[in-house]
Simulated scan of single mutants.
Amino acid sequence: MFGRLRAWKRRHSLLVDTLALTPLAMLGLLSTLSASSYADLSGRDRFGPVVLLLLSAMLVVPLIWRRKYPVVAFAIVALVCFVQWAVGIAVLPVNLAVLVAMYGVAARRPLKWAIAAAVVAEIGIFLSLVRTSADVLNNWPGPTVFVVAIWISGIYVNMRQRYVESLLERAERAERERDQQARIAAAAERTRIARELHDVVAHNVSVMVVQADGAGYAIDTDPEQARRAVQAVSSTGRQALAEMRRLVGVLRDDHASGGEYAPQPGLEQLADLIDQVRASGLPVDFTRSGPQPEVPDGEQLVIYRIIQEALTNTLKHGGPGVSASVQVEYGAHDVTLTVADDGRGASAARADDGHGLIGMRERVGMYGGTVHAAPRPGGGFRVTARLPIGQTA
């Protein structure tokens, strides 16, 4: 509600500034109407209500733009006050406009302008006392204290606004840096994924070469074996082609140092991964459900890496006495992974700023899947991922 109110005030700032001047305008109107005429300082001439109303308008109207043009508004009001003094019109209640304008300068302009406005206001007080008071020095401190109090209030508001603006700028800069770090982490993760997919494709191509050579040797002596080898070449080639498309999409870093091509970990290595985590001191309950379908090597690598990253986060942030559970549910067209722990959950400090979760989303999103990671109600953390397999992916 307050946010909408502030937004409305920003959109209609001119209307708000005009309405804020209503008390001062009413004060000028009432003081003018209270007397049919107004004597000058010498008592010789008399000024009618029309002149006083015009004077009040000239003092109040410039204040409408005191936020956008505070120095100009103050200069106009001060000039009108000087003309009022020069023609001999005594001080009116609406002359408080000069203090409102001085406050606007102090609250929205640098200190040198605020000091200049205060000096002008003090000169006006002095000139007014010269004509109306026999003892200027004794009567000057009272109005001066009032002026200084308003001036200090404006300076405080100015400093407060600058402090808030610096905080907002710092927060925006921190947000930009955070987004940049997230993009860097995503790019680094894509590079690592590309390298792994490169190895997967290279392994599939190696299998195709071996199978094709076997089919060539067996085509005359064992046609059935040659047929099975050719079918294996076809199946492996389709998988390699799919992985190659993803590899091109991820944009592998060509300048990265290459290594020996080897098959990446997959579903068969999950048990070894769980044993390694248990050896590190984290109790893990590992269950699988459903008949295991034929899962391409690239998606097996995604499953392995998600479980590995989730358990690594549990080791880092779960706290003492934490335990974890890993569930792999095989469906007809997808695989659902659930990695949960009973550790600190939302209270745990994520030292990597969520870069591991970014990597999970990059991997799963590449195959059209989804991943959700969040603290569990009552404590702990849960990572749930769904990965389509086969033609669905």
Rank of each mutant, 00 (worst) to 15 (best):
S257V: 04
S42P: 09
D199W: 02
Q300K: 00
Q84E: 07
A385V: 10
V145N: 04
V295H: 09
L63P: 15
P62I: 13
A373I: 03
H203V: 03
G3N: 05
M244V: 01
R245S: 13
E165T: 00
V207W: 06
I64C: 11
V230L: 08
R173N: 15
M1C: 01
G290C: 08
L167Y: 05
Y38W: 11
A349N: 08
R170D: 15
G321W: 15
G104H: 01
A86I: 06
R195Q: 13
L127V: 12
A332F: 03
G359R: 00
H333F: 10
A346H: 04
T236K: 01
F74V: 00
D199P: 06
A279Y: 10
W8Y: 10
A373M: 01
I123H: 11
A186Y: 09
D297W: 08
H372G: 05
P283V: 13
P23T: 00
V145E: 08
S235K: 01
A7Q: 06
G359F: 02
R228D: 11
L29T: 05
D179R: 00
A134V: 00
V201A: 09
A73C: 05
A215N: 06
S166A: 06
A348R: 01
R246Y: 13
V60G: 02
I274F: 13
I306E: 13
E260K: 00
D353K: 00
G345H: 04
V87A: 11
G142E: 12
V371F: 13
R227G: 07
A134F: 06
T384L: 02
G354H: 13
M360H: 02
A188Y: 14
D220L: 14
I219L: 15
A215F: 14
I125M: 09
Q327V: 07
A187M: 10
W85G: 02
R162L: 15
G28Y: 03
A212H: 09
L387F: 12
V100A: 11
S234A: 11
A39L: 11
L273G: 07
S280E: 12
A256Y: 06
A86P: 03
R245W: 14
Q391E: 12
V77P: 05
D45L: 15
S13C: 10
Q308A: 08
E309G: 02
R238V: 14
T392G: 09
V148Q: 05
L59Q: 07
I150T: 04
D45Y: 13
R183M: 13
M1L: 02
I303G: 15
P320T: 14
N204W: 03
A232G: 07
A373C: 03
L111I: 15
N138I: 04
G124Q: 10
P23W: 00
L273M: 09
V250H: 09
G369Q: 01
I306Y: 04
T18L: 14
E122Q: 05
A118I: 00
L267Y: 10
V277S: 05
D353M: 07
E122A: 03
